[in-house]
Design a protein around this nucleic acid. Structure first.
Lengths: 121, 121
DNA sequence: CCAACATTGACACGACCGTGATAAGGTCGG
DNA sequence: CCGACCTTATCACGGTCGTGTCAATGTTGG
């Protein structure tokens, strides 16, 4: 049988994260490996890749784990995303080049999405 | 002349934020008031409204100031936004109920936004 | 069977966040 | 001119984040 998955220590070895951090990263929902019947974490190729790219993401841009976790929240909690978007959009500081009409269009689209309407195909 | 703007203590009074927090909120770029020639902060109606809605945003959803600041970063730094989006999109874990088509739509909209295209009417 | 590994839970520690307080100094209005 | 306000800068404090380490216990494989 091909050794398809790695244990937490092996995964730590190849990704550069410590076992402790792998558990922490799982706890905030960023990389959640499967479990063996006995509860052992099983890291597959996909998880390993994600762990490496996560490292790059943090290095390249100045981002913290918690912030990526928040971005995840934004992606999964639509109401939160909408509330934050609405607040930011009302910001009087205009990033130059952005037109007010543009904002309105997007705001309307967002409301329609909230109402459960589909965007026109 | 009409008293168009409030000083920091007056703004604190009507918004419920302490003067200290008004300065802090400014330091993370969330509400940045104009300044008088002498450097005094001048809070107008727009800023006061934003400060109140900010308070609501934090109360209603479970969000911290720093997280709103991060959302702002996501909005202004396109490369960061793209990197985070790319990483999250590759996530194999599907939070149940979310459809892949949904993701695709949003992703496409995002790319179009980046390209400066308007949403289809 | 047992050594080597996995699990969860806890304590610890430096760094930063959110917040107040206070100091040292500039500005305003009557 | 002077008291009441504003400014920035700093110290302090509890809380959370990121991370290591350790203990107590369960699992695996030769």
């Amino acid at each position: 049988m091909a050794t398809e998955t790695l244990t937490i220590n092996e995964a730590a070895e190849t990704t550069g994260w410590s076992p402790r951090m792998l558990r922490y990263i799982e706890s905030i929902g960023l990389v959640v490996p499967e479990r063996s019947p006995a509860g052992y974490r099983l890291f597959g190729a996909a998880e390993l890749q994600r762990l490496r790219t996560l490292r790059e993401l943090l290095n390249d841009h100045d981002v913290a784990l918690g912030e990526v976790g928040f971005a995840l929240r934004l992606r999964t909690e639509a109401s939160l995303s909408d509330a934050v978007d609405a607040w930011l959009q009302a910001r009087p500081v205009r990033p130059q080049g952005t037109t007010a009409a543009d904002w309105l269009k997007r705001e309307q689209a967002k409301h329609m999405r909230l109402l459960g309407l589909t965007t026109p195909t």
